[in-house]
């Protein structure tokens, strides 16, 4: 791979061609907010938190799915971007029922951390108060759709790393939901291997283990990242 020159936030960098902007930034310790990205899984550009400005382009581009190009001038932080990131975060909170005080992931939640990171003070949008299901039919795990932000990390880790593809997404718009098999209760799934990878990569309290009570869920996403490395899953 050849090296190319780019500019990030007015500083010059040499990065590998073929990398995504997010990868290049990570290598140089520039942190970009992200939710749907998970190291080693295919990127889908779904959450739009990682949008960056590129000089000469009026459109913002997701850094997780955009490759670096020679002489690109990238800006990862600006007032405009902060505004968008705050709005996206508020939309997460307004769409479903994220009540931290009674959540297993309280204190160990990437959504909670994100809200702090982007400086969310209140939610400008009316809450939808959707009625979402809690499926506790699996012997070991629970999926609480109230907490799901549709990042689809669980779908991808199950399909790409475990190879089971128990999870996918049904419907569209605000009615989208994560499903197992034919919208089958998780406990009756014919494809789930109970490997627990989805629980570890889920950024919120949507997927959790029954042996954890409120505020007790501690996830281990690093274990899955290491596993992907060990298996050299080349995606």
């Amino acid at each position: 791979m050849s090296k190319i020159s780019i500019t990030i936030n007015d500083e010059p960098y040499k990065v590998e061609s073929g990398q995504t902007i997010m990868e290049a930034c990570k290598e140089h310790n520039i942190k970009i907010p992200s939710m749907c990205h998970f190291d080693g899984l295919t990127d889908v550009g779904a959450c739009r938190l990682c949008l960056v400005e590129i000089e000469g382009q009026s459109k913002l581009l997701p850094s997780c799915t955009t490759q670096v190009e020679p002489n690109q001038k990238i800006r990862t932080h600006s007032d405009r971007l902060s505004g968008h990131r705050q709005m996206i975060t508020e939309l997460f909170f307004s769409e479903r029922n994220h009540v931290c005080a009674v959540c297993v992931a309280n204190g160990n939640c990437e959504l909670q951390d994100l809200a702090t990171e982007v400086g969310m003070k209140h939610v400008r949008f009316p809450y939808l108060f959707q009625e979402c299901e809690v499926d506790a039919s699996h012997a070991m795990f629970v999926i609480d759709h109230n907490r799901c932000i549709m990042c689809t990390r669980c779908v991808r880790v199950c399909s790409e790393v475990e190879g089971a593809h128990n999870w996918d997404v049904k419907n569209r718009g605000y009615k989208v939901r994560i499903i197992s098999d034919f919208d089958t209760p998780w406990g009756e799934s014919e494809s789930c291997t109970s490997c627990r990878k989805c629980v570890e990569v889920c950024p919120t309290g949507s997927l959790w283990s029954k042996d954890k009570a409120q505020g007790q869920s501690k996830k281990n996403p690093q274990m899955i990242k290491d596993l992907i490395e060990k298996r050299k899953v080349n995606l």
């Binding site: 399909s159 593809h165 128990n166 999870w167 996918d168 997404v169 049904k170 419907n171 569209r172 499903i179 197992s180 098999d181 034919f182 919208d183 089958t184 014919e190 494809s191």
Partner: peptide, 25 residues
Amino acid sequence: PLEVIRHIAHALHLPASRVYGVVTF
């Protein structure tokens, strides 16, 4: 019908949830 979806998923070597997702999309 679910039976038909199941048959198609199997025949096209696709995960059940993927086919169900497409049908509901």
